[in-house]
Design a protein around this nucleic acid. Sequence first.
DNA 1: CGATCCGTTGAGGTGCGTCAACGGGAGTGG
DNA 2: CCACTCCCGTTGACGCACCTCAACGGATCG
Lengths: 220, 220
Amino acid sequence: MRSLTVCAALDPEELRRLADILQTSRVEAGQTLFSEGDAADALYNVTAGTVKLYKLLPDGRRQITGFLVTGDFLGLAVNDSYAYTAETVTAATLCRFPRKKIDALMDEFPKMQRRLFSMASNELAAAQDQMLLLGRKTAKEKICSFLLMLSQRAARRGHKENPVYVPMSRADIADYLGLTTETVSRTFTQLKTAGAISLQEGNKVLISDMDAIYDMAEGC
Amino acid sequence: MRSLTVCAALDPEELRRLADILQTSRVEAGQTLFSEGDAADALYNVTAGTVKLYKLLPDGRRQITGFLVTGDFLGLAVNDSYAYTAETVTAATLCRFPRKKIDALMDEFPKMQRRLFSMASNELAAAQDQMLLLGRKTAKEKICSFLLMLSQRAARRGHKENPVYVPMSRADIADYLGLTTETVSRTFTQLKTAGAISLQEGNKVLISDMDAIYDMAEGC
DNA sequence: CGATCCGTTGAGGTGCGTCAACGGGAGTGG
DNA sequence: CCACTCCCGTTGACGCACCTCAACGGATCG
């Protein structure tokens, strides 16, 4: 079994119990794991690939609230129903924990609950950063912040921070940053022309002037 | 001692222990409780009044990430430092829990930790709604969503849902919705002219056409 | 080799921001 | 009691960052 972030703080006994209840599954790109409003009967942990979460308005406008990668969990729900849709961006593998069983485990192992709480706190902080981005940053600042987020996340997972792997489409990036695909594309071109980045094979972005990207992410 | 939302699920013994460590304080309007980057040495629970949380960009642009009222808690931190500034909107009373002591209590009383986790999950869901608002809604949709949020929150706390008490300034509303004060003002005027709302004495907004506000909040 | 999807680029429009002015209420001081 | 100032909300005129609509090229696939 792959090491799971949720489980990092657990002892062997707890891990064994967890392994008993999880189901691992492989999902190809572009598949819906669950939809907004579905009964929230499970918690998921991403062990490979990228997953996006999004909410829709009645007329189809979409806001992507997060891109999840290895170690992230999804499926926290409020009223026993999911508040967002989850869809794979790339092929992915996930661990599925039935909610009833995980609730029971949380009572039994406070350390696990604490770990989940800590992860939820981190997500809350990330959500607040994203609100600042959506409410107050310009298109260029949004794109630079986005690239930096991906870079820093890759570094934290032990991958190289540059070039950055950007598996999602322009449409997904736009719906994450509150822009249109055209504006995303134009802004990439601007940054390319300015010599701050260059686009490479395989959906990779080379940040050639990291300092400039840092400054532009915060409007300095 | 007033009943605290964090404590709703606790038994008398737990409540007594909690009462031992909390400090209650009265704070007037416009005071800063703590600033972004400060050492996060305490958790707070609002027992009266309204508090706003915000983040700043280097050039002064501001994003308010939430307005907290009675029962809400604040002070969750990631790296032992606060990720946002907290400031009172109206005069308020708060309970302050030193972090070290609350951490110890959480280990002792899993029910309390569970309650905090559940509140964090709710905040996460609210944050995702706010991202949809900031990234994809128009000014009119934002204002209508905001009024509905205040109305529903008042109802949940046992107050009447209409008229809605709006204690915050146009500038605060603007920084919460990703707009300018002028646009907030103009949009209120539009809604007033359309007969959907009317402004009353004492910072109250009467929603005269609730259905219209509902529809406009989601772009129907 | 047509069909589809995705990213890019251009031309033009617009919703909201910017800048400015004004009026009312609250606080202050004479 | 009356100036005077400050702050807040409102309104108008104008500009622009980003959206909309459209066209096109390359990649993938049957």
